[in-house]
Nucleic acid binder design. Sequence first.
DNA 1: TAGATTGTTAATCGATTAACAATC
DNA 2: TAGATTGTTAATCGATTAACAATC
Lengths: 205, 205
Amino acid sequence: MSMKNVPDIVVGRLPLYLRALSFLGEEGRQVTSSQELGQKLGISPAQIRKDLSHFGEFGKQGTGYDIKYLSEQLRRILKVTEEREVALVGAGDLGRALIHYEGFAGKGFRIALVFDSNPQKIGQTIGPFEVLDSESIETIVADRGIEMAIVAVPASAAQDVVDALVRAGVRAILNYAPITVKVPAGVQVQYIDPVIHLQKMTYYL
Amino acid sequence: MSMKNVPDIVVGRLPLYLRALSFLGEEGRQVTSSQELGQKLGISPAQIRKDLSHFGEFGKQGTGYDIKYLSEQLRRILKVTEEREVALVGAGDLGRALIHYEGFAGKGFRIALVFDSNPQKIGQTIGPFEVLDSESIETIVADRGIEMAIVAVPASAAQDVVDALVRAGVRAILNYAPITVKVPAGVQVQYIDPVIHLQKMTYYL
DNA sequence: TAGATTGTTAATCGATTAACAATC
DNA sequence: TAGATTGTTAATCGATTAACAATC
């Protein structure tokens, strides 16, 4: 199904295209062009057309791209047409923020389980969730067939949590802990660390 | 002061090197090598040496790098030897999580001001902060000479907040709102959006 | 038709890697 | 010394851009 050999960096831009298209759609727009998208995203029009050409032909010469159609195609390519269940580990401040975050809806994800290892938090109710014991990650996540997880625990706990998730069959992890974790081949990890982003910028100040 | 023309992508890796060195230091280690760092970060040793060579010579043949010394040099290069004050806009769940986040300490940043536009939140105390009215961003941030900010408001409010920050003299913004914002040349923006990271990974599932 | 914009090719540009002399 | 690892060069690899025929 997925095209032969699309560079990672190209795949990484598709979600940005999809997000920009969503905004245009919400503004009631019907069509757009590689030029307009590029303008909004700070990416050259040529690059956008080249990126899309890895997956097919989605535009019309002289007209541009139908926003709804291209959005559908990108959702299909990215496999976010359905909402996937995501396990969240860590019910601290960040975990709570993620539970209450409304930005997942309609973008392909839904938090389905929440774990924490703190006995004071286990059993507690946060939003629509009862916090489960992290000890049960392996059994519950595996039973439910969940493939994605978000790790929002302290750095010291992150590797153990990731190991448990991997044993449970999770194949994609978004890690908020400020540590590079080890995972077997075939398991993907993405990192979010505000310090890293801030430090990148101070160099240029 | 800053070296001629170091590629962005190289600058972007320096914080990762610094973070890895910090961990090694905390483990009591004295020296490391490009090979070990590469192993931990999933980056080739040659690339690490090349990256560092943009800024000087920090290692010893046959031995490797003194962890403390290289850390100091990287902190100097990244300009995170002192703690910079950061303005936080948005005192919702995410804002609270950032206020309570302990990972900024010692990494070069300290949240110094917190703003929100919700009258119910203004004046409230969160951790050590009184929440200030977003209307006062321009005056207060400018008075205090703050150059960096974190935006943790809904997408619909983000551009206005960014505009106010820019008018206040902020030159580096970490934006958690899922929207690409417009800023004048000379102002940097970094983005954190969990949906984007998750969507990148589903492609490979 | 005239104007606009795609998809694609070829050229350019830049980043990564392999290899090794230098040297600790 | 022998072994290890740096800093750097040159080669390779890959990504971006410019340009344009095709065509809506």
